[in-house]
Design a protein around this nucleic acid. Sequence first.
DNA 1: CGTGTTATTGATAGATCTCAAAGATGGTGG
DNA 2: CCACCATCTTTGAGATCTATCAATAACACG
Lengths: 240, 240
Amino acid sequence: MPAYQSAATLPDPSIIAAVPLFAGLDGPARARILAAAQWRRVKAGDAVFRQGDEAETFYVLVDGYLKAVQTNAGGQQILVHFVNPREFFACVAMMEGQRYPVTMLAIKDSVALAWNRAETMQLVRRHPAVAANALMGFGSRMLEFQSRLRDSQTEKAGRRIAQALLQLSRNSGRKTECGIIIDFPITRQDVAEMAGTTLHTASRTIAGWERDGVLSCSRQKIVVTDPDRLAALAEVAEES
Amino acid sequence: MPAYQSAATLPDPSIIAAVPLFAGLDGPARARILAAAQWRRVKAGDAVFRQGDEAETFYVLVDGYLKAVQTNAGGQQILVHFVNPREFFACVAMMEGQRYPVTMLAIKDSVALAWNRAETMQLVRRHPAVAANALMGFGSRMLEFQSRLRDSQTEKAGRRIAQALLQLSRNSGRKTECGIIIDFPITRQDVAEMAGTTLHTASRTIAGWERDGVLSCSRQKIVVTDPDRLAALAEVAEES
DNA sequence: CGTGTTATTGATAGATCTCAAAGATGGTGG
DNA sequence: CCACCATCTTTGAGATCTATCAATAACACG
């Protein structure tokens, strides 16, 4: 599996060069940061950390894909977000005494760089640019949350599902000749948990769109063949 | 109105001393930051900025209360959050070329400190502690959003309303002999928009709790008389 | 070729929204 | 000081969406 192979190539500064969090840092600084990091490998299906664990480690995903799921007291789950390569996650680790609010599961074999809290704090303090970058990354995730929160309250299930798929195709899609394919295995249940609905409703809705030719899918795979139509479905009520 | 009066007292470093964002800074640094700030006064009902405006200014609320509302394409609103004294807002201003994602309305006469983007960036770069504090503040708001997002998808309307009121009483409540009073005028519509429901459902639900003695309310005023019962309602299904 | 996971589909029940109207409340101006 | 008006709140009845329950079908893996 290529994901895992590339993990074998150890301290390579080029890996870190493309991480937005470290934008604006010079070579030596990056090398130092990289030197302070631990490598963490996680197999598909395993957890990087679990909801409720003491938040001690901050991560940057180098390769693979993760999903963050949160469970409420009643045992119901929602899928909070996906983590793509080059993104950072587990920012709570910067806050003293916090616990991870989500369980972070690998959906492909994955590799991450890890820093403990002391190192992370030092990182932020020594490199103001990193703090600024973190704030930006944080900010855009916040915006995404805001719009999801709004949608979950004002939109109907169908539109929320469209929204979720659209966002997925934009953030984690790979373009092919037959459409935008979502780069990791994803179940109807996942989509439902993202859109805040049940897998039944998600299944029905997606089946309908497949009939309409908006997308095509097989087991754990979704290909968006007509992104524009999908975007339209995410915006306006589907009339038919 | 006391809120407005205290605005008259100009550059007083003690104002800034209690702002968590500036925790860990020494006196001279605070004085410099304060000197770079503009004062901004807003009357109840007026907007500090509007959704879609170029995000150029970053703020710290000194006195009063604000609410952040977001409108979607269809004209439906949600109440994203409230801003309490000493909290910062409009972090998007740190990001180049962004627009405000919400409209920020004063619900009481309010006073804020304002910095333009250049000053804000300098602030963050010169004082790593500020960046760290901002990350924390951001982080806890993010956690709040996550749990709201989860609730909006997994919980019933009643519980979401309880959750909203509970959070409101904790963040913006003032303790009195007859219970925790929410410190600013708030309508059923506001509560509904916060909980992601309609004012009708909110009205009915709240009326029910008033009969049960959990809270008492009059026009634009809510007093939580039994916080424990309310907390219970927010956690477990109400059986009756 | 079993076996467990994932996906589809139908029928039903229930919560919540929508539509509609009337009842409070408090401030304003005559 | 009172009448009026805008805003906020309450309440009812019906429509609708979506969750829930239940079963079957398709698929991948060992």
